[in-house]
């Protein structure tokens, strides 16, 4: 060999650098990724959601629609969206439940499987839950491989091809919206039907709701209904103490809601 030691070392460094370059660095050459970097069509958009609790009757149609649309196995207890039933008794006790994520509606008066006489009940209501569309989401922060990521419009998506299934995001979400998909074994969450809203359609749950409980839209668009509601009505968010800055807003939220 007529290579000097210096040249050998130089080549070694080059080889290490090249070997260290992950294939994902070439991702930018994919047509769709390249297009996304050039056409910033969605820039400035920020999807938000409004849930009007005062209108919800707990029929469960939204949960059904969500499970079918997003292929979350129908007979599992997990769901991207769910409905909670709150029964506040006259002695101040609160009974809450969400059997099968509220998929089948609440036809019996049996909160947490208990028979409660009607005269003991002070009030009752239903609360639909979904991804809180956090601007500072803990799930993206803790993902060790970057499988959970933001879209330019602020929606958090999970890359099923890259998620390792460590469950850190599930632990980190204070709203309990994440779970492991029973078939794909990766982290799963509500993304307000990103595949539909990017084509100008409504999320499946919004279309399924007969009572107009759920609304979605671009909060930065001055003409959107969501923006008007958030600006003019008294809305609140869930668990703001975690500093996640949710953009899923609730109308008529009760202090007993968890």
């Amino acid at each position: 060999m007529n290579n000097s030691r210096r040249e050998f070392l130089k080549d070694t460094v080059k080889a290490i650098l090249l070997a260290g370059l992950p294939l994902s660095a070439f991702e930018v050459f994919k047509p769709e990724v390249f297009a996304a970097t050039i056409l910033k069509g969605n820039k400035g958009k920020q999807w938000a959601f409004v849930v009007d609790i005062t209108k919800c009757v707990g029929c469960g149609m939204c949960v059904k629609a969500c499970k079918l649309e997003n292929e979350v196995p129908y007979d599992t207890t997990v769901s991207r969206t769910w409905i909670e039933r709150y029964v506040v008794l006259k002695d101040g006790k609160v009974l809450t439940d969400s059997p099968m994520a509220g998929r089948d509606g609440y036809l019996k008066d049996d909160p947490q499987g208990q028979k409660i006489p009607k005269e003991d009940i002070a009030r009752g209501f239903f609360v639909p839950k979904l991804c809180n569309l956090c601007r500072k989401s803990t799930c993206v922060q803790v993902c060790p491989v970057g499988a959970s990521h933001y879209t330019p419009e602020g929606i958090v998506l999970v890359d099923r091809e890259w998620c390792i299934g460590c469950g850190y995001c599930i632990m980190a979400c204070p709203y309990g919206t994440r779970f492991f998909h029973p078939v794909y074994k990766t982290a799963e969450k509500c993304n307000i039907c990103y595949h539909r809203i990017t084509k100008g359609m409504n999320p499946a749950c919004v279309d399924a709701c007969t009572f107009g409980v759920r609304k979605h839209g671009d909060i930065n668009d001055p003409n959107s209904e969501v923006r008007k509601i958030v600006l003019t009505e008294r809305v609140s968010v869930l668990k703001d103490e975690y500093g996640t800055m949710p953009t899923t807003f609730y109308i008529g939220l009760d202090h007993t809601v968890r």
Binding site: V142, V145, I164, F180
Partner: peptide, 17 residues
């Protein structure tokens, strides 16, 4: 859940985690 993807932590470490 997917042990064979464990190597992803080294390939694309997401440093806020």
């Amino acid at each position: 859940q997917l042990p064979f993807r464990g190597i992803n932590v080294f390939l694309t470490p997401h440093f806020t985690s």
